[in-house]
Design a protein around this nucleic acid. Structure first.
Lengths: 412, 412
DNA sequence: CGGCTTACTTCACGGCGTGATTTAACGGCT
DNA sequence: AGCCGTTAAATCACGCCGTGAAGTAAGCCG
C-alpha cells in the first residue's frame, strides 16, 4: 500500500507497453489502428509505444493488409522467435522439463524419473537443473534468450519478498513430505535464470485460462481431479492466492460432515468421495500400484454395467456436482473447468450426472450464469502453465527484459 | 480491458489524490511529512496534492505538533464536517435510513416499518425516499453536502453499466420475492443524489472490514449468521463479487450431501443446520412468530443445561466449524469474522466449539494463518456499511465531487 | 498522373512526479 | 534579544508522458 504500484509518469509508459504487448500476444497480429481502438490509447501513443517495442525487438511487423483505396495497415505481432520459456512440472513420480518459444511451441522436453530419493528436495532440484541444462544444450539456446524458468510443484508456495530473485521461495508440500523447502535457494545456486515457482494446480489452471477451456472468462474455477482434488480460482482474470497462497484447496471442502475419512485426517472431505485414490481403493477390484490403470479399469467396469462400479461413479458424480455447486455459490464464476488426469478420464461419463447434481444443489441465479466444461489441454498442461509464469511476468512488465548482467560478465 | 483504468497523466494525479485522501481518512491526522513516507510520494508531490485538496475544501489543517528544535509539522485531516453520507438498510420488516458525517457519527436516523405491502418494491422505494427526505430535513442538510445514498438490500445486486447514475441497478431478492426489481430506476425518480446499492451482507462486511473486527486484514471473510446464512468475501482489500455479483453465498454450501432439506429446496445446506430459522424450527419449544425471541429462548435453555438445546447448539457449532473450514481452505483468509444477529447472539457460547471443529476440518497450513473472531459492530452495521458505499467512491475518485448541476439549476 | 482515402508519424501542448533548492518556523544557546 | 542549528514545507527546473491536430506515407481509382 505504499504507492499502489507506480506513481510516476514512467509507470504510465510501462503500463501502456504492457497493455499493447498483452493485446498483441493474445489477440494475434493487429494493426496499429486496431491496437489504438482496443487499448484506448491515442494513435500517437500507439505509434510511440510500438516504435519502442519494435526497436527493442519485442515485436515485429508481419505483412500488411490492403484496403480499397487507402494506405494498407501494417500488422504487428510479438516476436515469437527471439525468446524462450522453460516450464517444469514436478510430479509425484518424475520431473518434466520443457522448452517453449513464445507461441508455446515445444522445442525440446525431457522426463527425468525420480529416484527413491524422490521426496528429497535437493534431489528434485538437481533433476530440474539437469533437465534445464539438457534442453538448453540440445537446442543451443543462449541463456539470454530465456525469459525465465517456471516450476509447478505440489503443495503450497510462499513467494517470499519480491525483488529477491526468487531466493525467498519456500514450498510446503504435505503430500510429498516437503516441509518449508527453500526451493528458490536450491535452484538459484544452479542457474542465473529468473525463477518462478507456483503450485502445479495453479499453473495448470492458468494454462487452461490462457489457452484452453477457460479462454475469455474473467471469473472461473479450474477444478483439478487427480489422485487428490484441488482447484485454481481465477478472480477478475488473475489467479487468486489468498493470504498465504493456499487458496483453492477444494479437495478438503466438507461435503459430508461425519462422513468418510480422508487422507488429510478429517472426515467428509470431497476428495474422499471423488479423488482417484479414494475411488480405486473403494472399488478394490483393481490391480494395486498403478492408480491410473486402476481408475481406467473402474471406468471400464462401469461401462460394462457392473453395478458396484456404476454405483461408485454415480456417487462420485453426485458429490462432484455438490462440490461444484459450492464453487458456484461461493465464487460465482462464469465457467467451471474440470481438469486433472482423473477428471479428464472420467469427465465424458460423469459430466451429465455432475451437471444434474449441480443444478439441484447450486442456487439458481449464479448457476444460470455458470458453464461446466471439461479441460481441453490434458495433464501435460502443468508444464505449459509453468511456462506461463515467466511469460506473465514478461507481459506485465511491458516487455522489460530481466536484468541478467551476471549471466554474461560474471564468469569469475 | 479498454485501458485498464487510466492512461493519461491526469489519472496519475487522480490516483495520488485518492491515495492521500484514503490515508488521511483511515490513518487519522497526518503531517505532510508522514504522508510522503506512507504513500511513497515525494515531498513536492505531497505539497502539491495536499494543496489542491485544501483548496477544494476536502481536507483541513488541524493544529501542529512541535519537535525539539525544528519547524513543527502541520497535521492534516479529512474535512469531516462538510460532507454527509446516507446509509439505508432494507430489512425484512423495516427500512432504516441514517445520515452520517464523514467520521460515521450518526446525525439522524429513522426506522420505517414495512406495511403488508412489504414485498412490493415500489413501496420500499417510497419508504426509502421518505426516510431520506426526513433525515435531510430534520438536520437541514443541503443536497450538495451529501456524497451519496448507499442502500443495503437482501438479494443479489446487478450494478448495471457504470456511469449511468445508478439507473441500471437491478435487484434479485429471492427471499423477499423481488425478481429483477429495477431499484435504481425507482429511486432515481425521487432523488438527484448519487445512488449506490449493494447486498446487505456485503455492506455489513465492508463495515466490519473498515471499522470493526476486520480492520487491517487484506484477505478476510465476514460470515453472516442470521435467519439465513451468508458471507462477504474480501479479497485483497476489496469486496469479491464474482461474475454476476452473487459470490459469497455461503449458506447453501453443502455440508451434508443428502442431509436436511433447506428452504432453498436443496438438501444438506449449511443454512439448514446453523441458520436461526432452522434452529428455532428444529427446537420446536419456542414461541412462534418472533425468531429472535425464539433463538434467545433456545440459548437460555442450553445455558440451563437442557439436553435437547445443548445438543442442537453443539451440532450447530460443529457444522459452523466445518463451514468455516471450507472458507479457510478455499479462500485462505487472514481472518474470519462472524457477524449477523444470530451469530453475535450465539457467538460467545459457540466460538470454542466452532474453533475446535474448524481445527479438525481445515487444512493445517491455512488454518494456522487464520483468526476466527466475532464481529464488533452489531447488526446495525448494515446501515453503516451502506454509507461506506458512497464514501468508498468518494475516496477512490480522489475526492472528486459527483457532478450534480441538476440539483441546483434544474428546477424547471 | 492527379485526386482520394486511409494508416501512420510528427510535434506543440498541458500536465505529472522527482529531486534540489529555498523559505518558513520552531528550540536552544549565548 | 539575537543568532544558529534543525526540521517542515513550498517552489522550481527538468525529463517524461499522452493527447489531438497537423502533416506525411502509401496504396487505390479514374
Amino acid at each position: 500500500m505504499t504507492g499502489r504500484g507506480g506513481n510516476t509518469v514512467r509507470d504510465l509508459r510501462r503500463g501502456s507497453r504492457a497493455t499493447v504487448l498483452r493485446r498483441l500476444y493474445f489477440d494475434g497480429p493487429l494493426s496499429r489502428q486496431e491496437l489504438g481502438a482496443l487499448t484506448g490509447l491515442s494513435a500517437g501513443s500507439v505509434s510511440n509505444v510500438t516504435g519502442e517495442l519494435l526497436a527493442d525487438g519485442l515485436i515485429e511487423e508481419c505483412g500488411s493488409v490492403g484496403s480499397d483505396g487507402g494506405r494498407p495497415r501494417t500488422m504487428l505481432r510479438v516476436a515469437a522467435g527471439r525468446f524462450r520459456l522453460v516450464g517444469v512440472d514436478v510430479g509425484e513420480t518424475q520431473v518434466r522439463v520443457a522448452l517453449f518459444d513464445l507461441t508455446r511451441t515445444e522445442l525440446a522436453a525431457g522426463d527425468l524419473p525420480l529416484s527413491d530419493r524422490g521426496r528429497d528436495a535437493g534431489h528434485v532440484a538437481e533433476l530440474i537443473l539437469a533437465g534445464l541444462a539438457d534442453v538448453l544444450d540440445r537446442t543451443g539456446t543462449a541463456p539470454e534468450a530465456v525469459l525465465g524458468v517456471g516450476v509447478g510443484v505440489p503443495g503450497i508456495v510462499e513467494q517470499g519478498a519480491p525483488g529477491t530473485d526468487g531466493l525467498g521461495i519456500v514450498v510446503h508440500g504435505q503430500t510429498v513430505g516437503w516441509d518449508a523447502v527453500p526451493l528458490g535457494r536450491l535452484l538459484r545456486t544452479g542457474t542465473g535464470l529468473p525463477l518462478f515457482v507456483d503450485n502445479g494446480a495453479k499453473t495448470l489452471g492458468q494454462a487452461e485460462m490462457w489457452f484452453g477451456a477457460g479462454r475469455g472468462a474473467r471469473h472461473a474455477v479450474v477444478a483439478l481431479v487427480g489422485s487428490g482434488v484441488g482447484a485454481c480460482v481465477i478472480a477478475d482474470g488473475a489467479r487468486y492466492r489468498g493470504a498465504t497462497s493456499s487458496a483453492g484447496e477444494w479437495g478438503h471442502t466438507k461435503v459430508h460432515v461425519g462422513g468418510r475419512r480422508c487422507r488429510c485426517g478429517a472426515r467428509g472431505c470431497l476428495e474422499a468421495y471423488v479423488g482417484a485414490e479414494a475411488l480405486v481403493e473403494r472399488w478394490g477390484a483393481a490391480p494395486p500400484g498403478d492408480e491410473k490403470a486402476g481408475l481406467a479399469a473402474l471406468l471400464a467396469a462401469a461401462e460394462a454395467g457392473e453395478p458396484a462400479a456404476v454405483g461408485l461413479l454415480d456417487e462420485a458424480a453426485e458429490y462432484l456436482g455438490a462440490g461444484i455447486a459450492d464453487l458456484v455459490n461461493l465464487f460465482n464464476p462464469e465457467r467451471i473447468v474440470i481438469g486433472g488426469w482423473a477428471g479428464l478420464l472420467l469427465g465424458p461419463r460423469l459430466l451429465p450426472g455432475i451437471r444434474a447434481a449441480a443444478t439441484g444443489y447450486a442456487l439458481r441465479f449464479p448457476y444460470e450464469h455458470a458453464l461446466i466444461v471439461l479441460g481441453t489441454l490434458g495433464p501435460e498442461a502443468v508444464t505449459t502453465g509453468a511456462a506461463t509464469l515467466p511469460l506473465s511476468d514478461f507481459l506485465d512488465s511491458g516487455g522489460q527484459l530481466p536484468d541478467r548482467s551476471h549471466l554474461s560478465d560474471a564468469s569469475a
